[in-house]
């Protein structure tokens, strides 16, 4: 277990981390979620030992092994896939037979077996990321830190990457991965929301969804009249949040029955045949709400 207590770190006079405390090691996959500049990379680097915190403590490091995958490709581009893996294996004290067996296993697992002799620098973005992960888990670390592993990766590869991470976690390595894609919380056992250097919340994603204080309704295919309807809804339900996504309209409000009734009444007067349906909240809305609250507003 790695325990962080009141960790603070400043970069060029600006507080990048402010009194962060949490314990790692309980959950298999922890997602570190936050917008750009939230302090995700800084926090990961502090845990990795790359940055020394200006105050606070990290306990439980003794005998705790780490793997780290940085945001940018950090392996040797002019060396082949195999040479890179052997190098990191040697650094981590694996003997030649151990390395050979583990590398074969990882190459098969990541699907890089066919690229074994290719220069790492010549691999595609997704392959580079897989190689980085393979190099970081060669020695089966207790904790794997990943800084935005899915950044710039296409949606299909993102899903594949998370599957890969899930299988790493199944092997007994705990994972702490940062991401700016809010929907990736679905792959995590625990989510930590980081905003402007502060840890807003650390909980399971399902609990965060449950605790969402708003209800969401959708009007499907509101068509060209969307703007007109948005104004009308705001008029009959003061204080609600109305926004459009594609041709659909979404309404967020804390109250339940009165809102639904008022909008249904409004819709029944129209000849467009529009209907109101309640939808489950998405991580995007849940987290955005938390960030807005942290910014000092009351949310929606």
């Amino acid at each position: 277990m790695l325990k962080l207590t009141n960790i603070s770190y400043s970069y060029r006079g600006k507080k990048a981390l402010d009194q962060i405390s949490f314990t790692l090691g309980g959950e298999n996959i922890t997602g570190l979620i936050g917008p750009d500049g939230a302090g995700k990379t800084t926090l990961l680097k502090v845990i990795a030992g790359l940055y020394r915190p200006e105050s606070g403590q990290i306990s439980g490091r003794e005998g705790f092994t780490l793997g780290y995958v940085s945001q940018f490709f950090g392996l040797y581009g002019e060396m082949s896939v195999q040479e890179n893996l052997h190098f990191y294996g040697r650094l981590n004290g694996l003997s030649y037979p151990e390395r050979t067996q583990r590398i074969a296993e990882l190459l098969h697992w990541t699907g890089l077996a066919s690229a074994i002799d290719r220069e790492a620098g010549a691999l595609s973005g997704g392959m580079k990321q897989k190689l980085s992960i393979a190099a970081a888990v060669l020695h089966r670390p207790d904790l794997l830190l990943l800084d935005e592993p899915t950044n710039g990766v296409d949606p299909l590869s993102r899903r594949e990457m998370w599957k890969l991470l899930q299988s790493v976690a199944e092997g007994g390595t705990k994972i702490l991965a940062s991401t700016q894609y809010l929907d990736e919380a679905a792959y995590c056992d625990q989510v930590m929301l980081l905003h402007k250097g502060q840890l807003l919340v650390a909980d399971s994603p399902s609990r965060l969804l449950e605790d969402f204080p708003f209800r969401i309704w959708a009007i499907r295919d509101a068509g060209r009249e969307r703007i007109k309807w948005m104004d009308k809804i705001r008029e009959v339900v003061p204080g609600c949040e109305v926004f459009s996504k594609g041709r659909d309209l979404y309404i967020l409000h804390r109250e339940e029955m009165s809102v639904q009734r008022k909008i249904n009444t409004l819709l029944s007067s129209s000849r467009d045949g529009l209907a109101l349906e309640e939808v489950n909240p998405l991580y995007e809305e849940v987290f955005t709400q938390r960030f807005l609250e942290a910014d000092g507003g009351k949310g929606r």
């Binding site: 990795a48 790359l50 940085s70 490709f73 950090g74």
Partner: peptide, 8 residues
């Protein structure tokens, strides 16, 4: 950025 990997 390879130095980071070496330090870790």
């Amino acid at each position: 950025g390879t130095l980071e990997q070496l330090i870790v």
